[in-house]
Nucleic acid binder design. Structure first.
Lengths: 233, 233
DNA sequence: CGTTCTCTTGAATATGCTCAAAGATGGTGG
DNA sequence: CCACCATCTTTGAGCATATTCAAGAGAACG
């Protein structure tokens, strides 16, 4: 029965993880410590499972370093990528409010450090630190916006505008050179097309001078305007 | 400069609206009054605009009675339905945290009563009533879950599983008989297909004995198992 | 350096879209 | 109250697009 982290080892690691996370960023040093104290670190190797679909969860998972891939498994055994978690991103917020089983698998794509907070601890933290709830609400609102954009993007029957819309969002964050957050076959599933179609559409964009491929996981956007013209809205 | 609602008229209407809303439901009578006091009612007729895309918003809109349709307008002028707000549903939460313009149009599909709360008032309320933030978080988490499910559903290239998945979600809530929340042509846009395809796929489900149509806006699910078999997961 | 996985390329097929028109439905005004 | 009109929905046929199936090229990994 381990109830805390007062086993002599410092909570340095927990503190580092917590302080990296945007939703905790504006907290005072003292409050960060409170958060760190209820945090449990998790280590996952490449290909390792963070959690599996069907498992009951009452935990918030926050990625510190590395990357986690969330995906569904279709009836035919195909993987449908839901989302990719990069440092600062989190998952499990739904389980914090409704007693539910995980709808997806979570797998580390590289060596990954996460920190976890139990539902009980988080609700405690929120009641003690009101600003925290505002940050959480903001983060959820952002995710919601992204998810709704994704849903409307997917409703487009043609593959090219879907791809263009996706690249457009990515290129907003970074300037020019876009790092693809997943493999091409995962990206294809994410965009609702086959790897073959993705390959062809990418090739088309390259031929048209809109983009340039750098290696296997980078794309350089040459003509932002053309991309916007192809994307919806 | 109207600063409040103490103009002698009762806040009965505001109170009624507020008390209908799930996120406020568990509040005490006294707290409900506080909420009602910062609420402004809005009336919209069929076809009337609640707000338009491009407008700046710092307001939360909550539907009391009636229905509001949220939609995008594509470059070709086609309407892409994002979501339909029924009594108790709300929109505008994103604008509460990030200064942003509306990404969609909001139009009443019938005579509709809404109540609105400004960003300033809501943040005030939250700081004064901590449980409120938990309810908001819960509501956002639910919406997020629905949006992510929608996004993965849309990523399926075949129309039939998309439709089946959608009907499956609806039939979970109600038992057997499903009320369609929008017209067939809107539903088609929402599901990422043409009205023609939707009509054909519905006909196919009827032929297969999976569903039965009741009038224009109701569907009776006869074989839940068959529906689940057609839907993904 | 070879093995394995990912990605690309090529053809045939199938599915949904577009265009066109007819059939329902519901609301409105005479 | 009924007929008319606008709108929504359905049905049909040809066409465009993406998928499927198959095989080859290219990276990444041990």
């Amino acid at each position: 029965m381990e109830h805390g982290h007062q086993h002599g080892h410092s909570i340095e690691r927990e503190l580092e993880c917590v302080s990296q996370v945007p939703i905790f960023q504006s907290l005072a040093e003292e409050q960060l410590l409170s958060v760190a104290q209820v945090t449990r670190p998790i280590h996952a190797v490449r290909g390792g499972a963070v959690f599996n679909a069907g498992e009951v969860s009452q935990t918030l998972y926050i990625v510190n370093t590395g990357q986690v891939r969330l995906y569904h498994l279709s009836a035919e055994g195909k993987e449908q990528v839901l989302r990719v978690l990069n440092p600062g991103d989190f998952v499990g917020e739904i389980a914090l409010f409704t007693d539910e089983i995980h709808g997806s698998y979570a797998e580390a794509t590289m060596t990954t450090e996460l920190c976890t907070i139990s539902r009980e601890s988080l609700t405690n933290l929120i009641s003690r630190m009101p600003p925290l709830s505002m940050h959480l609400l903001g983060a959820l609102a952002d995710r919601l916006k992204a998810a709704e954009r994704q849903a409307t993007l997917m409703a487009i029957p043609d593959a090219l505008p879907r791809l263009a819309g996706y690249l457009q969002v990515l290129s907003h964050d970074q300037s020019g050179v876009v790092d693809l957050p997943m493999s091409k076959q995962d990206l294809a599933a994410y965009l609702g097309m086959t790897p073959e179609s993705l390959s062809r559409k990418l090739h088309q964009l390259v031929s048209d001078g809109v983009i340039e491929t750098i290696g296997r996981r980078q794309i350089k956007v040459l003509a932002v305007n053309d991309l916007a013209a192809l994307a919806p809205q």
